[in-house]
């Protein structure tokens, strides 16, 4: 474990806490893409299939359980909780996210570290996470003004994988046999998808103005 990866995991956890706070405090999920939340639930379920078989550390197991439980809880809130469900922007959240699932799984069948059930689902989860934010970014562009907590949620979610890139650089420089091309390339693509969001987020922070993504 290095400081970049720990900072990345804490930023990821923070993004989830900010989203939970937004939904709990405002009893609303306006501006939040249910489809992105569903994709993230699939990402965690596919990536942590080894939750009970491979013990890495207490921290690792604890965080996996937190990520799985929180992503399922958020999807449940948006789908089932009567007050939250009412505020879901159904007609704005129209990205065909099942195509992202199909494409990621197809890619994982061809590009993986080992042709085993766990490794294919792990690669699938890496590819899917790289594109999981797309429905959310499209929703933000369509819904015009973005409330602070939703903007902070997306910012921290994008920043966490950026910190992981620093972690991979650090591990590549300090560990002799460290090569994680699948995670690294996907992580760069994932962070690059946030580029324009980061730009507008920075502008809104600098001008102390409302975050607005151009349509």
């Amino acid at each position: 474990m290095n400081i970049f990866r720990l900072a990345g995991d804490m930023t990821h956890l923070l993004s989830i806490l900010v989203l939970l706070l937004k939904i709990y405090a405002t009893k609303s999920c306006s501006g939040v893409s249910r489809k992105t939340q569903e994709l993230y639930a699939i990402v965690f379920l596919a990536r942590y299939l080894d939750l009970f078989t491979d013990f890495i550390s207490v921290y690792n197991t604890f965080m996996k359980i937190v990520f799985i439980a929180s992503s399922l809880a958020i999807v449940w809130c948006i789908r089932v909780h009567p007050m939250v469900k009412r505020s879901y922007d159904k007609d704005l959240d129209t990205f065909r996210h099942y195509l992202l699932v199909a494409a990621s799984f197809l890619l994982a069948l061809f590009l993986h570290e080992k042709f085993t059930f766990l490794e294919i689902f792990w690669a699938f989860s890496i590819y899917l996470e790289a594109v999981a934010i797309l429905p959310q970014l499209v929703l933000l562009q369509r819904s015009g003004n973005v409330d602070n907590l939703t903007g902070q949620y997306v910012f921290f979610l994008g920043a966490y994988r950026g910190l992981y890139i620093l972690n991979w650089i650090y591990r590549y420089l300090t560990e002799p046999r460290f090569t994680r091309w699948i995670a690294c390339v996907s992580g760069v693509v994932q962070t690059a998808l946030y580029a324009d969001f980061f730009y507008y987020y920075f502008i809104s922070w600098k001008n102390n103005s409302k975050l607005k993504l151009p349509a």
């Binding site: 690792n60 965080m63 080992k114 490794e119």
Partner: peptide, 10 residues
């Protein structure tokens, strides 16, 4: 000992 293909990252 974590061998290489163990995904030790989240």
């Amino acid at each position: 000992e974590i061998d290489d293909d163990d995904h030790d990252e989240l």
